[in-house]
């Protein structure tokens, strides 16, 4: 049994080290002898046992003795642990592929394949006074009026709702994949801008006015906003250029910006988005499934029908 366990363990370790590769080869020889009904007399088991014993012996004779006495049992324990950990690693890899996170979609916790948690990072929405901070389970489109979002009707059976802010790093990170999804898979698409960064209210006004005004191309405006440097977006003069590039009639936009109703409408839109129980951007709903944080393209694609 030891040879079989060693073959598995050293095969994995052998991927990273030549010394363990040599052991894996010896273990294979031992296993091969066993399955061909020959005794495994290569001394492999004793070799490995001896090496470990000497290391233990140098630290504590007592532990070395115990290890030697219960060698078989310890080998079995490690085997079980290896099987369990292999299962979890496999599950983590599967989850990472599907959801961009080892622990499942929107789950927290360490992920070996995304150790810095890049795929889970969000720009947090300031909590509402007196209310508990919502969790992933609270996310829903049920109480949100999607008519107030920008909409691209592709006559698809899939629907993607993208909520983010122009000056938020993680929304900007997600945007290229969302755009790719829109181009390649052509789902019905909703976009809502949620200003989560302090001092970016005027950006919301430009966004609102660009969306309301039909003289220009709103999606081009959105693209320009997400692809421009954040520093530039924070400059009102630059936003005028964006409006111009997106084909808007500047005078109409200025008129909208000056209209006192604009701020009230923006407030209503923010409230409407808030009904999703959003706690950070980006937030994407693919066919009503909430996905928080910037995920790889394959994850969004995976939730399409």
């Amino acid at each position: 049994m030891f040879c079989f366990i060693a073959l598995l363990v050293f095969s994995v370790l052998g991927i990273f080290s030549a010394t363990h590769r040599k052991f894996a080869k010896e273990a294979f020889d031992c296993v091969f002898r066993r399955i061909t009904f020959r005794p495994c007399n290569t001394g492999f088991r004793e070799k490995v046992r001896g090496i470990i014993l000497v290391k233990l012996m140098k630290r504590s004779s007592f532990f070395a003795k115990v290890f030697n006495k219960y060698f078989e049992l310890i080998a079995w324990i490690f085997f079980v642990l290896m099987i369990v950990s292999t299962f979890y690693v496999g599950r983590g890899a599967y989850n990472f592929y599907l959801y961009g996170n080892c622990n499942g979609v929107n789950e927290e916790g360490f992920c070996l394949f995304d150790p810095t948690g890049e795929n889970n990072k969000i720009s947090p929405v300031a909590p509402t006074c007196g209310l508990d901070t919502p969790t992933v389970d609270d996310l829903s489109l049920a109480n949100t009026d999607l008519d107030k979002f920008f909409f691209i009707d592709n006559n698809s059976e899939d629907t993607v709702v993208f909520i983010g802010c122009y000056v938020c790093d993680f929304t900007r990170k997600a945007f290229p994949d969302i755009e790719k999804l829109l181009e390649k898979k052509k789902p019905n698409f909703y976009f809502g801008h949620l200003p989560v960064k302090h001092g970016s209210d005027f950006i919301s006004s430009y966004d609102y006015c660009a969306r309301e005004d039909t003289s220009g191309d709103y999606w081009k405006f959105v693209e320009l906003m997400f692809t421009s440097d954040i520093e530039n977006i924070n400059d009102q003069n630059y936003l005028q250029e964006v409006v111009d590039k997106a084909g808007y009639d500047k005078s109409k936009i200025d008129e909208c910006l000056a209209d006192p109703e604009t701020l009230a409408s923006i407030e209503q839109n923010i409230f409407n988005i808030g009904n999703t129980n959003i706690y950070g951007t980006p937030l994407v709903f693919v066919n009503n499934k909430a996905i928080v944080g910037p995920k790889p393209y394959r994850v969004y694609k995976g939730f399409l029908k």
């Binding site: 001394g43 004793e46 070799k47 046992r49 001896g50 090496i51 014993l53 000497v54 290391k55 012996m57």
Partner: peptide, 9 residues
């Protein structure tokens, strides 16, 4: 074998 390895190591 075990003895030999241990003596060496």
């Amino acid at each position: 074998h075990q003895l030999s390895i241990m003596l060496d190591r």
